[in-house]
Design a protein around this nucleic acid. Structure first.
Lengths: 155, 155
DNA sequence: GGGTAGTACATGCAAATGCATATACTTAGG
DNA sequence: CCTAAGTATATGCATTTGCATGTACTACCC
């Protein structure tokens, strides 16, 4: 009774994904316990973080949505709430009257930085005991490859 | 103007984590588009999946909860709904009258297998173009190390 | 240009979620 | 034992989420 040869890489991909996924869950669970994150949902922090990553400072709502695991209507209302809290600002998009562009306010940027520091600190404490500097680099290089491949096959 | 030396590994851990996290989000977004997953939330699938991973077949609710990014009350009610759908069964725990133990029903196992196949297939299609067989192994080995380290420092 | 299809965001509404807390049981100490 | 502290799950309630759909604009094609 031998295994179908073609199923070996399939299994391997699945096992690798499972390990990566469980790692993400495990690390996330620890990070969420940090008292610094009582102020904001992980999802809300993720919005702030993504907004820091835009060179022009302004990001389209639909573009932001592509980086998150949240539905468009939910993001729409989350952004509305965060605007009300003074964490970000909205304006109609330049060249498309349908669109909305977002940017951090100073308060939003400050909060992101503060939580970001706690976040980064927590990550360091969780990953450093597990992996050497070279291994971290290796891991990043592998996931970067997957990211590049996903971007290349943008459906 | 030189960087604080101690901040280098911190940055490295953060960048590695960001890449891993974005990979998880990217892959997840693709997987969710699979029509096979219209029947069940990712979170619900995750419950079914985790229940297949228990050798005895029965899993404690609190133990299951430790593997998920969901609050205890939410899981409690999700399990209630899934029991109503006939996907799993509940019984009072053996040695602890407070506790609840869960197991898949045949219908639950069948559904998990069906979605699991689609899941695994999708993962293979996403990861294989990105990484060679050796790289998959490397990646798994690195995330396994992180998992082991997290388990060792169980707070 | 006028009409049709497509895209970007918002909204109504039912369902799912989390927080605080209640309930039922277990464990530890005196 | 009996009590106090701790643990496992459930429940009330306000908030958040997603789905279906609405509205406003854009792009394409004749």
């Amino acid at each position: 009774m031998s295994l179908d040869t073609s199923s070996v890489p399939v299994r391997q991909a699945a096992e690798t994904w499972e390990s990566l996924f469980r790692t993400q869950v495990g690390v996330m669970r620890r990070l969420q316990k940090d008292p610094a994150f009582k102020e904001l949902t992980m999802r809300e922090y993720d919005v702030l973080f993504n907004l820091t990553r835009c060179p022009t400072g302004w990001t389209r709502l639909n573009e932001l949505n592509e980086h998150l695991l949240i539905s468009q209507p939910s993001l729409s209302r989350m952004v509305e709430r965060m605007e009300a809290k003074g964490l970000l600002q909205r304006r109609p998009a330049e060249n498309d009257q349908r669109g909305v562009e977002l940017a951090l306010t100073d308060a939003g940027r400050d909060l992101q930085r503060r939580l970001g520091r706690a976040h980064v600190q927590g990550i360091h404490e969780l990953l450093s005991p597990a992996l050497s500097s070279e291994e971290l680099l290796q891991l990043k290089s592998l996931t970067d490859k997957v990211l590049a491949s996903l971007a290349a096959s943008a459906d």
